[in-house]
Structure formats: C-alpha cells, structure tokens
C-alpha cells in the first residue's frame, strides 16, 4: 500500500520522559478526510503522542511523516489546539488577538498581521460563535469560551491536518455539538482531524476512525471495527465497569 501520501504516518514511535518510557509501539497511517478519535485513560500518553508527532518533544525512536515528508517541512499544513490549561489566561490580550496568532505561522518573522488577517481571524471567531466576544479580555471568558477561542485559532491556521487535545473539556452539550459540526465541515473539505476524547458514549457518533492508546497502541482502525469491548478492556486495563453500549462485537483488526 502507498502510505507515504497519508496525512499522518507514524512508524514505530516511542517517547520517554527522563528515560521513563511513556509511549512505545505506536504505528499507524491516518486516512485523509476523516475524523479520528484518540482515546485512552489519564496518563495514557495521548497528549504526549500529539506533541511527539508535532515535534514538540524529542522522539526516542521511530519516525513521523506528514504527507510523506518530515514534520519540519510540512508545518504549514498542521493546526494545533493545545489543552486549555497549558496557558495562563490572565494575559493582556483579547480573544481576537489570540485567534490572530493562528496567522503568525503564515506571516513568518517580523511581519505584522494585516487587515486581511484580522478579517480572517474574525471569520474564524464567528464560526465558533464567538464573534461578540472578539474584544473581550481573555481572562474574562468562561472556560468553554476559552476553549472555543483556541479552536478558532486553529481554524485561523488554515491547515490540512488538525491535532486537538481535548477540545470538549468544559464545554456544554450545545457547544459540543457546534464544535462537532465544525469538525465535520473540515472533513468535507478533505481535512484530517485527530481529536483526543474522553467521553466513550459519544465515540461512535463522532469519529470515523479510532486510535486506542494506553502507553502503547492497542488498536487503530474504523470505529465500527475497533471499538469493541475487548479493546476497551485492554485500553482501560479492565478498569471500566460501565461499558458504553456497543453493537455486536466485531472481530479485532490488529
């Protein structure tokens, strides 16, 4: 199979913090134009995987390719939504300014954002339903609104592949649906979205493909095939007492 044209292709990836391995044996080829969920318990290495793919952490082994080339050359194709707690929101800046940061990559060094960038950022804010808050100082936004600002910032990156670390944390049900609508819209534009997700109940509804992770890769494939009781037990170490209602078990692919 010709894998090098896949949006994200991960080969035998492993990562360690201070020589303690936290991820190993990760190997998958993400198909284009799909919503891909990443599930696993706390500390499974989901955030670590995303950071490793995006070159934010040194790999201890393996390799990552974005559309057949190393990440460094393909940076402009990738958008990123970090976990919300990763920044201090008491920063003197407005929601629109944060979204504008999504344009910085395209601008490059020293160049200041133009009016066109501002308009683009404003459109992105509008898409996530936050246009009214453009001028608001960011610490005066609620947690869910901050999350939407981060989402808008990634949209402003105008990427082809998106990595989103728990974009649904702290958002209400209506907002969650709105975000999913946006993600599906990205999908129709042939964009690939990888999303760290915790709510197993909605996995089948939201995601076409699934990566199940617990310090190593448990399964990767179409949700209908890999989202099985067996895989869930392996992923969560048999700690799941209430399993999401699953259809009849399907054979494991990996």
């Amino acid at each position: 199979m010709q894998t090098s044209n896949r949006p994200v292709s991960v080969r035998d990836l492993s990562v360690a913090y201070h020589r303690k391995p936290v991820l190993r044996d990760v190997q998958f080829d993400a198909p284009e134009g799909k919503l891909i969920g990443i599930v696993g318990p706390n500390g499974a290495g989901k955030s670590t995987l995303i950071k490793a793919i995006m070159n934010l952490l040194p790999l201890t082994g393996g390799e990552v390719q974005i559309y057949g080339k190393p990440y460094k050359e393909q940076r402009a194709l990738v958008g990123y939504v970090p976990q919300r707690e990763s920044v201090d929101w008491d920063f003197p800046t407005s929601a629109l300014d944060v979204v504008l940061m999504g344009r910085y990559g395209k601008l490059g060094w020293f160049r200041k954002p133009k009016a066109a960038d501002r308009e683009y950022a404003m459109d992105c804010l509008d898409k996530v339903g936050m246009a009214d808050f453009a001028k608001r100082q960011i610490s005066q936004l609620s947690g869910g609104q901050q999350q939407r600002v981060f989402l808008a910032r990634s949209l402003a990156q105008d990427a082809r592949i998106y990595f989103m670390d728990e974009p649904f944390v702290g958002v209400d049900a209506a907002t969650e649906k709105a975000i999913i609508r946006i993600l599906n819209e990205l999908k129709t534009q042939k964009k690939t979205v990888l999303v760290v997700h915790h709510d197993l109940q909605t996995v089948r509804e939201y995601f076409d493909w699934l990566l199940m992770l617990n310090m190593r890769q448990i399964a990767f494939g179409p949700t209908s095939e890999v989202f099985t009781t067996d895989n869930l037990q392996k992923t969560y170490g048999g700690r799941l007492t209430v399993l999401p209602d699953l259809p009849e078990p399907v054979a494991e692919t990996r």
């Binding site: 070159n55 940076r75 970090p82 990763s86 920063f91 910085y104 060094w109 020293f110 200041k112 990156q157």
Partner: peptide, 22 residues
C-alpha cells in the same frame, strides 16, 4: 518593536509558537 509579535507568542503560548515553527 521588531520582535513584538514573536515575543507576544512566546509569552502567551510558547508550545503553540513552537508548533508554528518559531
């Protein structure tokens, strides 16, 4: 003045900045 935008990114969200290639 020259590095205003870069420093702003650095101070607010260095992780995102690195993902953009800065």
């Amino acid at each position: 003045l020259l590095l205003f935008k870069e420093f702003k990114l650095l101070c607010f969200d260095p992780g995102f900045g690195r993902s953009l290639g800065f």
